[in-house]
Computed example of a mutant assay.
Amino acid sequence: MKNSKPTIHDISKALNINSSTVSRALNNSPRVSKKTKDLILKKAKELGYQKNTLASNLRTNKTNTIGIIVPRISRNFFSSVISGIEERAYIAGYNVVIGQSFESFEREQKLVSTFLSNRVDGLLISISMETTDYDHLENFKNNGGPIVFYDRPVPLKNFASITINDFEASFVATQHLISKGCKNIVHFSGIQKIALYKNRKEGYIAALKKHNIPVNEDYIFEAKLSENDGVEFAKKILKLGNIDGIYASNDTSAIGAMQYLKANGIRIPEDISVVGFNNDPISAVIEPNLTTINQPDFEMGTIACSQLIDLIEKKDVNGQHQSKVLPTELIVRNS
């Protein structure tokens, strides 16, 4: 049975033009004149010709596809990073494939393996909260393509990462609460396996020490920082009874705590002041508006993607495209 899909040979036959010339025109070769190229492209459109991308990829050993692994796409921060990645990838002629780890190391491993099997050209990843082993990532780099980490740094050499200074941002957030008169400040910390949350905890501790405020380990709560985690933390705060400040490592848990505290008669900020992290859109519209740390999420995505594409296309011959630390900003509101 004859293949109903038109081929390069069908275009060649219809125009009486050599098939190699047709192929060059369809690949935008400068060796073909504009007049001939326009004629071939017009006929290709008339016949409904579609380029066989799979065959082309097999010939070039390149798929023009980037894999993205994100902990949770529902988090505004990560969705904004992905928007930045997609914009940059589109301009450069790359497609993106997205997978969510849901903070699971096992899922992350499977996603990396799937991307390797499907021969993506490179990988952008923010590791899960459970990830402490990096063999799957080393394997991808050795057998697949380059990797650029975003948001969550890892203790690996010869890998590029695009992050912020989490220590400094946390120091600023905690010091802001101290400047408002807070002395008994709790910290909502993420899982300490992740360097990002370790650095935020250390920034919190450093600010307390600078102002001669004792560090109380009972004031440091660790979880995956969901909204429900914030509620559970708020229950602990009510039992402690003397808390006057909260510094949360993300806005989601901060808002969960605020809602529970308000429902139980706690005034914010009169009784307890709150600072979050991420500057999620909801932080500007809840009552009271949440003071928070703003991260350049979209910019992080565009820069990370640019770094990866340069590595894929071997424009990083001198190792210039390595880790970058982006600036943050304290957004002061009413909480």
Rank of each mutant, 00 (worst) to 15 (best):
F78Q: 01
I243P: 03
N294E: 15
K2D: 12
E232K: 12
A248K: 03
Q175Y: 13
A284G: 03
G84N: 13
A304N: 00
I127Y: 01
S83C: 08
L39T: 05
A92S: 05
D229Y: 00
S20D: 12
P296Q: 12
K193Y: 12
S189T: 13
S323H: 12
M129H: 06
D135Q: 09
A89K: 07
L123T: 06
L39S: 01
K193P: 05
N242K: 15
E108R: 10
A284W: 01
D229K: 03
H211F: 13
S23N: 02
T328A: 06
T60L: 14
R24Q: 15
I243H: 02
N28A: 14
N165A: 06
V285Y: 14
V325G: 09
K209F: 07
I286Y: 06
R333K: 09
Q100E: 15
L240N: 14
K34I: 14
A263N: 15
V172P: 08
A234L: 07
E138D: 13
L177K: 00
M129W: 00
E130G: 13
I82G: 00
L47Q: 03
N184G: 04
D229E: 06
R24G: 11
T292G: 09
P214L: 02
K157I: 07
K157L: 11
F221Q: 05
T328Y: 04
Q109D: 14
S189I: 07
V148H: 02
F277D: 00
L290K: 00
N334I: 04
T65Q: 08
A304W: 00
I66Q: 00
L208C: 11
N27M: 04
N142V: 10
F140Q: 05
N76D: 09
I213S: 01
L238K: 14
D297W: 04
D316G: 12
T53K: 15
S126Q: 04
S20Q: 13
V172D: 13
Y204D: 08
I73W: 04
D297Q: 01
K193V: 11
V275M: 03
S12Y: 02
H321E: 11
R267F: 05
